[in-house]
Design a protein around this nucleic acid. Structure first.
Length: 728
DNA sequence: AATATTCCCGTTTTT
DNA sequence: CGGGAATATT
């Protein structure tokens, strides 16, 4: 370990302001860092970790916990860059818990080979639980009960706790389902995301010896985004720092936007009560936004009551006023945003520095259409991501079943994928047999016993059992090779080789995705040479959506206000700032006004230079045009930082948007082989053309060798003549 | 077993 | 309006 040299510590502190420096140099006892947006929080937390490692502790004895993989990775990289991070534990809550449960599975009472199930699988199991309890799944939809059970777990309430506290018909029924669900999880040796936290919280509470051992190991614990911790996470943190209290939490109550997921803003608000001798440091200088943007955001959030007062300030320029724009309709709003973006790009702003935020995903469609028409490249950061793709889940299911033979969800997923003639009836018989004999489904398949009760299906099932047995050794090989073998020997590769790939914006074929998964596994094994398949599976299970979406494309980014947290852009447009949308309100329900205000605050503070909030008088929602009223939040913004505009002004002053939303007149002449030019991809040739009701899907082979599919009505394609093509 | 059709439902989603 | 899932159809 390098000695704490004077120069390296000087270096750590050199570019920090006074409160940042105090936070970094603080070494003993509880510390709360209230960090406003853009105040250099990540810098502080990483420097602090390194500083501790250099002075009063050692890297191996420091634990830094984040919420997202992205944050963990970022912190890890920054720490590594100092050369002093080796051996430090930097990970997400969930990764930490998964690791602890894997190591201490016996004490925790979980199967050593447990599988971590994602939301889809959880819903499948929930559905099965509803059926098991004998209730109709239409009335007790898994998606509707899921939050109840998830919240219960986040609050560390077991099925029996829940049952005891049940107060009406609905909660009593859910208690039953919860019980059945837990039973299923145990039988299939699965844990959901919430279990990871709850189990560890309980383990630490009950197992004093283990708790003491862990606290002994980690002299200092750092927790990022503390405002988003739930009860289980609170317990874990608390129990890890019970004696020493060397706990540093950073966060911002004003950016707590996950209450609906169990986050308890009270955890950060009452930190000083929980840790009476806590020091509190406020990071109030903002390095991101202009004075006006900050003033507007600050005035908005000042309307909240449950918060800790901060006085945000910045040395940055005054900047242009924040625009509040009223439009007649949502269509005009979208067009106006597109026009504004276009002129900003023409003026030299990098498209990747521009973002459009909205409260609900359904608002993205209109924006997308307008951007398409204007020929502006964009990406939508949406929920459906890589690891949720069917083909990916198929591959992973094979590995899961090899690791955890009790994993019925995985087994049922692949028993007939690729199709091997094992139909619904056969599966049903197998399940019945498993229940009757009280054995695992998998054992019946692989025990090589009499399968004659299956009739015609017997041979197929036996074949499948043999396939699984023959694949078993891949668990011993490195992840990359394991994936490779599974993909080829299961027949998945052959199966997906024939699928042409989904039509739509994504040009990735399932096969390409599978290959990418294989290379991801190989990369993983290169990075961690000792890693097993089990390690890699765990890694993938804990990898979220947000991790894959961050493409470094030079495109305008569209995303929800929630996913905007932690990011920053030169120019931000927030659309649909209307009562009922932001703040969001459901019928018969009250809006959580303070949380919605925080959400708006988060969105506004993402902007560095320019910020526009817009609303429309009429908006098409769920196929109906609704009358909309501007959000009350808009009236909370200070007049001197804001400029209110009625739709006309902006639209007229900016250049008209070229309307590409129509087919070219000579579309009848467009056919396979037609030569085209695309502003981004250059010359190409149409290789397929499928007219649809509203859209004509074309695939174009470009000169760079790539084939891309696009919508003829919207794509900025130009027809070119043969001789031009030769020259180009 | 794969495809067509109808029906239902509708926030946000770090892991 | 549009996606997903459950059902109907060949």
């Amino acid at each position: 370990m390098p000695r704490p040299s004077r120069s390296s510590i000087e270096y750590l502190l050199s570019d920090l302001n006074a409160p940042q420096r105090t936070a970094v140099e603080h070494t003993d006892g509880p510390l709360l860092v209230l960090a406003g947006p853009g105040s250099g929080k990540t810098r502080v937390i990483t420097r602090r970790a390194v500083h501790l490692a250099l002075t009063v502790s050692r890297p191996e004895r420091i634990l830094a916990i984040t919420f997202t993989n992205k944050a963990a990775r970022e912190m890890r990289e920054r720490i590594d860059a100092t050369g002093i991070g080796e051996g430090m534990t930097v990970c997400t809550f969930h990764a930490l818990c998964a690791r602890l449960l894997r190591i201490h599975h016996e004490r925790a009472g979980v199967d050593r080979s447990f599988t971590i199930v994602d939301r889809d699988d959880r819903r499948k199991l929930l559905k099965e639980a509803v059926v098991a309890v004998g209730l109709p799944t239409e009335q007790w939809r898994p998606a509707a009960i899921e939050p109840d059970i998830s919240n219960a777990k986040n609050a560390m309430r077991s099925a029996s706790d829940y049952s005891n506290a049940a107060y009406d018909w609905r909660t009593r029924t859910i208690a039953q389902i919860y019980g059945a669900y837990e039973h299923l999880l145990t039988r299939t040796a699965c844990l959901d995301f919430d279990d990871l936290l709850m189990r560890v919280a309980i383990l630490l509470r009950e197992d004093v010896e283990l708790r003491e051992r862990l606290e002994e190991r980690y002299t200092h614990v750092l927790v990022d985004e503390y405002q988003d911790t739930n009860a289980a996470q609170y317990q874990i943190v608390r129990l890890l720092t019970l004696d020493r209290s060397n706990l540093c939490v950073t966060g911002d109550p004003d950016q707590s936007i996950y209450r609906w997921r169990g986050a308890d803003i009270g955890n950060i608000l009452s930190f000083e009560r929980d840790y009476p001798n806590a020091d509190v440091i406020r990071l109030e200088q903002n390095y991101r936004s202009t004075k006006r943007i900050l003033a507007a955001a600050d005035a908005l959030i000042a309307h909240n009551v449950s918060r800790k007062i901060k006085s945000l300030w910045t040395d940055n320029a005054q900047g242009p006023k924040v625009s509040v724009v009223e439009h007649e309709s949502s269509v005009e709003e979208a067009q106006s945003v597109a026009a504004e973006i276009r002129s900003r790009i023409e003026a030299g702003t990098d498209a990747g520095e521009i973002a459009v935020f909205y409260r609900v995903n359904s608002l993205s469609r209109g924006i997308e259409e307008a951007l398409m028409r204007a020929g502006i490249a964009y990406t939508v950061a949406r929920g459906l991501e890589f690891y949720n793709r069917k083909e990916i889940k198929d591959v992973l299911a094979y590995l899961r079943i090899l690791m955890n033979p009790a994993d019925e969800v995985a087994l049922l997923r692949i028993i007939n994928t690729p199709p091997r003639g094992i139909g619904a009836t056969t599966v049903k018989r197998l399940i019945e047999r498993a229940i009757v004999e009280g054995r695992r489904l998998m054992d019946i398949l692989t025990d090589n016993r009499d399968l004659s009760f299956l009739g015609r299906g017997a041979a197929k099932v036996r074949g499948f059992g043999e396939l699984i047995l023959s694949l078993a050794p891949v668990l011993q090989s490195p992840p990359g090779q394991a994936v490779e073998r599974v993909v080829s020997e299961s027949g998945l590769r052959a199966m997906y080789a024939e699928v042409p790939g989904s039509i739509g914006e994504s040009d990735r074929t399932p096969l390409a995705n599978i290959n990418e998964l294989a290379s991801a596994a190989t990369e993983f094994q290169d990075e961690f040479p000792d890693a097993t398949v089990v390690d890699w599976l765990e890694h993938t299970a804990l990898l979220g959506d947000a991790d894959t979406m961050l493409g470094e494309l030079r495109a305008v980014t569209l995303m929800t206000l929630h996913s905007a947290k932690g990011l920053e852009f030169e120019e931000v447009h927030i659309v649909g700032v209307e009562d009922g949308i932001l703040p969001f309100r459901r019928e018969e329900e009250e809006a959580d006004e303070e949380e919605e205000r925080r959400l708006c605050f988060v969105g506004m503070t993402r902007a560095k230079q320019r910020l526009t909030l817009s609303h429309a008088r009429y908006r098409m929602l769920r196929g109906r045009t609704e009358r909309k009223v501007r959000s009350p939040f808009l009236d909370e913004l200070p007049e001197d930082a804001v400029e209110s505009i009625r739709q006309g002004a902006v639209c007229k002053s900016s250049a008209p948007v070229p309307d590409r939303g129509r087919l070219p007149d000579d579309v009848a002449l467009w056919e396979n082989g037609t030569l085209v030019r695309h502003p981004l991809h250059g010359m190409g040739k149409i290789v397929s053309l499928e007219p649809g009701a509203r859209r004509t899907q074309v695939r174009v082979l470009f000169q760079d060798g790539d084939t891309r599919s696009m919508i003829l009505e919207f794509a900025p394609l130009e027809r070119v003549d043969f001789y031009e093509y030769d020259e180009g």
